[in-house]
Structures are given as structure tokens and as C-alpha cells.
Design a protein around this nucleic acid. Structure first.
Length: 195
DNA sequence: CGCAGGATCCGCT
DNA sequence: GCGGATCCTGCGA
């Protein structure tokens, strides 16, 4: 049984947190058991100065409210028909977050296949931000939930030695912000969404 | 109250 | 590789 990380893990600058999250284990426990995967790809969103972030210019609405709270909570939001999972960082009053873009399946793989429906290859279960939330059964009901407490939490995983850095994905129409090197991934891992 | 657009995925070519 | 699905959020009137 995995143990959640201490809350203090999340008390670090957002870009360092995005790097530190690589290799950590994302776990969701429910009535069926536990499904989990190692984080292999993340993206940082630095609110006030980052035009690509929902919290750009400190925009504060019901949707972005949780990012103004303490670090270590979950910021979930819908895009098209999918749910995306972010880790809130930056501390109180600093609306920053880290998007979990891809994970490598660890436990509960059979349930992931069941939730993902027609997917046949293990690689396609979790190699995208909308895919991994569906595979793990994460939805908007986790908005604001603490990621250092069950049932949805982050635990110590394996050490990632080879880290690559580059621009983010899917945000082409946001001026200079699209070129910021805020994306981190485990180099060579086949479960990364691109590259 | 209506409209424009988005941190995506999937199927088909 | 490309285009459509599909629906909520934010903003302006």
C-alpha cells in the first residue's frame, strides 16, 4: 500500500515542482481498489505572467479559485468533453499550477482498459492529459481535493534521471507564452504524449 | 442571454 | 496527418 507524500513536498517553486513530480506515483483509490501510474510528463502554468494560464493576470473566478489557495490541492477542469488534472502550487495568493500530461501505468491496469473502452495498446491508456484522468477514474468531483490525502494522492515513485525540457503543447494562440520552456518529460519514456 | 473559443481525443485517410 | 465532435466558461450587451 502506497503512502501519500507530505504536504511540504508541494511547497516549492512551480517550475521545480513540475520537475520534481516526474517519477512520482499518482494513485486513485476507490471501491474497486487502487489504480496508479508514474508521472512521466508535466507542464507548469505561472498565472500572473503566463498568458496561456487560466489564471493569467490574476483572473479570479469560480473555476480558478482553487489556484489562489494553498499548494497541493487538485485543480480539475473540463476542456471539450475531457477532464484535466493539475496540481496547485505557488502558495496562497499565487495562482500557479502543474498540469499532469501523461503517466506510465503501474497498478490497476485492467480497470484502466475497462474505463478506456476501445483502447487496445497499453501505451494509449494514459499518454495524454484527458486519457489518464479517464483511465484512473478522475473527474470534476476531485476539484479542490488534497493530493496528500486519500483517496486521490501522490506517493514516492522511482527516480527519473533523464529529464527533457521544451515548450508546451496545444496553446498556439497565446502570443509569446507559447514558447516558454515550461514542459518537462522523462526522456525516452514511451508513455510521454509526444516526442 | 447569447456567443466565441479552448491546457483534447479519436477515427479515417 | 487532418478535421470534426462537443460542452462549459467567461465576457459583453
Amino acid at each position: 500500500m502506497q503512502q501519500p507524500l507530505n504536504e511540504s513536498f508541494f511547497q516549492q517553486p512551480t517550475l521545480e515542482l513540475a520537475r520534481s513530480l516526474l517519477g512520482m506515483l499518482l494513485v486513485n483509490e476507490n471501491e474497486e481498489g487502487a489504480a496508479s501510474g508514474w508521472i512521466v510528463e508535466t507542464e507548469a502554468y505561472l498565472g500572473p505572467i503566463d498568458r496561456a494560464a487560466h489564471s493569467f493576470n490574476n483572473r479570479r473566478t469560480r473555476r480558478t479559485e482553487v489556484m489562489f489557495g494553498p499548494a497541493g490541492r487538485a485543480y480539475t477542469h473540463l476542456i471539450h468533453t475531457h477532464c484535466l488534472l493539475n496540481v496547485v502550487s505557488g502558495g496562497i495568493g499565487h495562482p500557479e499550477s502543474v498540469l499532469i500530461r501523461a503517466i506510465e501505468p503501474c497498478a490497476g491496469i485492467e480497470w484502466m482498459y475497462r474505463r478506456r473502452g476501445s483502447v487496445k495498446k497499453e501505451q494509449e491508456l494514459t499518454n495524454g492529459p484527458g486519457k489518464l484522468t479517464k483511465a484512473l477514474g478522475i473527474g470534476m468531483e476531485f476539484y479542490g481535493a488534497s493530493l496528500f490525502e486519500r483517496p486521490l494522492f501522490i506517493a514516492a515513485g522511482k527516480k527519473v534521471t533523464s529529464v527533457a525540457v521544451g515548450p508546451r503543447i496545444g496553446i498556439d494562440n497565446t502570443g509569446e507564452a507559447k514558447d516558454y520552456p515550461y514542459r518537462f518529460w522523462h526522456e525516452g519514456n514511451p508513455f510521454v504524449s509526444k516526442g
